[in-house]
Design a protein around this nucleic acid. Structure first.
Lengths: 144, 144
DNA sequence: CTCCTAAGGTCTCAAACTGAGACTATTGGT
DNA sequence: ACCAATAGTCTCAGTTTGAGACCTTAGGAG
C-alpha cells in the first residue's frame, strides 16, 4: 500500500526534525520537545484537554469526567495548562463560588494533533491488545 | 481565520469521541484512551519513537540520543513498545552481543500523529514560553 | 595466564511524584 | 445551630523514577 511509502517519508521528516532539535542542544529550557511534549504528554493532560473539547467545564465536572484523576492532580494539571496558556480559568461569584475552565484559542489549536493521536489509538487498540497478549504468552512460556 | 471554525468542528468531533469512550465505560482494560494514550503519552515513549524514526538504532545509541533517559527507563520503555508491537528487537551474535531496535509497520504508522504533535510543539513553543513567563510574573506580584 | 574492554542489561537505594482522603472557607437553606 | 455545596489545600503513605554499581561473555593486550 501507499501507506508504507508515506510513512517512510514522514519517518525521515521526523528524523530530520529530531536532528534539528539535537543540534539546538537539549538544554531543558530550549528544546520544544522536552518543554511541550513532556507537558502535554503526561499522564492526565491529554485527557483533560479532551474533556474540555466540547464546552467549558467546571472543576467538579472535570473531576467526574476524567477517570480516576484525583483532585490534587486535576488542580495541578489545570494550573499548568493555565500557565501554558492552553486553558483559561473563570470564577463565578456564586456561593460557593464555582469555577469554569475553557480552552483558549491555543488550547483549541492543540486539539487537532490530539485528535489525530486519539484516532490512531482507537484504530489500533485491537492490534495492540493482541500484540500484548501474544507477548505475555511468549514470556510465560519461556519461564518454567 | 478559518482556523478557528475548523478547530471548533474538530472540537465537537473530539467531544463526541470522548462521549463514546465514556459510554464504553472507562474500565482500564477496555478504554483505548487509557490503554494507548497512557502508554505512548508517558515521559519517554514519544521521544524514543521519534529517535527510531529515521533508522534502526542500537541500545547504546538510543541512550545517547534521548536526552537524560536512564538505562533503566530506556529498557523499560523499549520492552513496553515491543510488547505493544510498535518496535521489534533484533539481537546480533557479536561479542558482546549487540541489539538493534526498529519500528514495526504499526510503529511507523504512529509517526504520523506524533509528527503532527511535534510540529504543533515546535510551532507554539515560543507562545507557550511567553505565557509561562507572564503567568509566573503575575504570581510573583500577588505574593508580597 | 590475567586483565581490560565492549554492549546491553539488571539491581539497589534514595529521591521525587502521585493518590486517598481528611480538612478548610463561605453562605444559603431547614 | 447545623448541614450542604464548590473548589480547593494538606498530609501521609505508596508508587515510580533516577543514579550508578554490578553482571556476563569473549577477544585482544601484556
Amino acid at each position: 500500500m501507499a501507506d508504507v511509502a508515506e510513512a517512510i517519508l514522514r519517518s525521515s521528516a521526523i528524523a530530520a526534525q529530531f536532528g534539528i532539535w539535537e543540534e539546538r542542544d537539549f538544554d531543558a529550557g530550549r528544546c520544544p520537545m522536552r518543554n511541550v511534549l513532556d507537558r502535554i504528554g503526561d499522564k492526565w493532560t491529554m485527557l483533560v484537554l479532551m474533556a474540555l473539547a466540547g464546552e467549558p467545564r467546571r472543576f467538579g465536572v472535570l473531576l467526574r469526567m476524567v477517570p480516576d484523576i484525583s483532585k490534587r492532580m486535576l488542580t495541578q494539571t489545570l494550573r499548568l495548562l493555565e500557565r501554558d496558556g492552553l486553558v483559561t480559568r473563570h470564577v463565578f461569584a456564586t456561593t460557593p463560588p464555582s469555577v469554569e475552565y475553557r480552552l483558549s484559542p491555543l488550547g483549541l489549536s492543540a486539539l487537532e494533533p490530539l485528535h489525530a493521536l486519539a484516532q490512531w489509538a482507537d484504530a489500533n487498540f485491537a492490534t495492540i491488545r493482541a500484540s500484548r497478549a501474544r507477548y505475555d504468552d511468549g514470556l510465560a512460556r519461556t519461564d518454567p
